[in-house]
Computed example of a mutant assay.
Amino acid sequence: MKLPYVIRTVLLLSILFTTITSQAQQNEDLLNILIKKNVLSQQEADSIRADQAIKEQAKKDKANQHNITIGTRALQISGLVQTEYQGFQQSGFNNSFSLHRARLDVKGDINDNWNYEVYTEFAGTTKLLDAYTTYKIADYLKFTAGQFKVPFSLESLISDSQLDFIDRSQVVNALAGRSADVIGNQNGRDIGIQIGGSFAKLNEHYLFDYTFGVFNGAGYDVTADNNSRKDIVGRLTVHPIKNLDISGNFYNGVGFYGTPAKNQKRNRGGFDARYVIGGLAIQAEYDKGTDGAIKRDGWFGQATYFVIPKRLQLAAKYDTYDPNKIVKTDRTNYYTGGVNYYFNNWARITLDYIDRREEITQVKNNIIETQLQLTF
C-alpha cells in the first residue's frame, strides 16, 4: 500500500536534505530503493532528478557567470613538457640537458561550428605559436584565420607530442619553415587564412581532405609582412582504404633572406604517405624546394612497431637530404634507431641513436638523445 501523499513528501524531503552532500550515485541508489518499496513512482523520481539537475546547474552559473569552466567545451587547458639529453660524438660539442619544449595550450568551442586555439611556447624565448579561429560551415568547408601551421609536409603537421622520434627529418627542417629553412625557424607556422574540409564519404570515412591557404610568408609571431607578395599553399589527401593516407602538397612564395637579405623565390613541392595496421605504422615523405637559384630535395622512410601494445614501441628511420642539387658531394644520410616507452597516456620516454653519414668526408658526429615527455 502506498503511503499518504503528505507522509511521502515529508519522507522525501528528509532524504534529500540528509544526502545533499553525498555523491550523485548515492542519491540515485536511494531513489531506486524508494521506487522498489513503492514510496515513489517512477514519474516522481524522474521529476526529482530533473529538479536536482536544474539546481546544480544554477549553482555553477552563479559561481561562473560567463559559463566558462576549465575542461569544458568553452575552455580547455592542456600542456606539453619535454626534457631532453643529448650526447655528442663530435668533439667541441658538450653533452647536456635541455628543456626542449614547455608549452601551454588554451582552446575551446564558441559554439558547435566555431572554435579557437592559443598555443604558447615558454622554453627559451617565449613565443606565440598558434592563435587562430576556425568556423565550420560543413565537413566540406571550414575557414581558418590567424597564426597556425602551414599545411605543407605530413611530418611538419604532426603534433610535437605525437612524433615517433625526438627530431624531425632533415628535409622537413629545411623546407617546411623549421630549423634549417632559409627564412629561419618558424616552427612550421605563418599568419594567414585558409579553407579546408573533407568530402566524398565512403564506408563511414571520407575519401578526400583538402586545404588551401594564403599566408604572409614571413613566419610566425611577427607584427608585419616583409614583402607585399602573399604566398599560397595547397594540400590534398586521399584515403583509399581505412588507415591509409596519401597526400600531395605545394607551396609557392617569396621570402626575404640571403646575404644581403632580399626578396627571393621560395617554392616547395612534395608528397607523403602513412599506413597503420595493428601495431605497425609505416610513413614516407619526399620534398623538394627552390630557394633563389638553389634547388634542394630529400626524403625519408620510417617504420614503428609496438612489441608491447600501448607500452613499448621500436622505431627505425632512413633520412637523406641534398641541400644543393648542383653540388654532387653534399648529401647527408641519417640512420636512426629508437625506442619509445609509454608509462601511460600522458608520459613517455624516448631514446634515439642517430648515425650520421656524409657523402665524401665522414665526420664523427653521431648523436644519442633521450627525452622525457609529459602532457596534461
Rank of each mutant, 00 (worst) to 15 (best):
A180W: 03
Q89P: 12
I354N: 01
L11G: 14
L128C: 10
L244D: 03
Q90C: 13
G234M: 13
I241W: 02
K262Q: 09
S228Q: 09
I15K: 01
G298I: 11
N64E: 11
D297T: 11
F343Q: 04
G337W: 01
W114T: 08
I158N: 04
W114L: 03
T370G: 10
L351Y: 05
I349P: 03
F376K: 00
N267A: 07
D61G: 03
F208N: 06
R101Y: 08
L30D: 09
R168H: 02
F122C: 08
A284F: 02
Y251D: 01
N216T: 14
P260T: 15
W299F: 12
S41R: 00
N344H: 05
T336E: 02
D221V: 04
Y353V: 14
Y335W: 05
Q52F: 12
L104D: 11
E359P: 05
Q371K: 15
Y335C: 04
S228G: 11
E369A: 14
Q170R: 09
Y275P: 03
L129I: 11
E28P: 08
H66W: 14
G255M: 05
L16K: 01
L175N: 02
G219C: 02
N366W: 02
F208V: 10
D109N: 12
D291A: 04
A74T: 13
V106E: 01
K230A: 07
R235E: 15
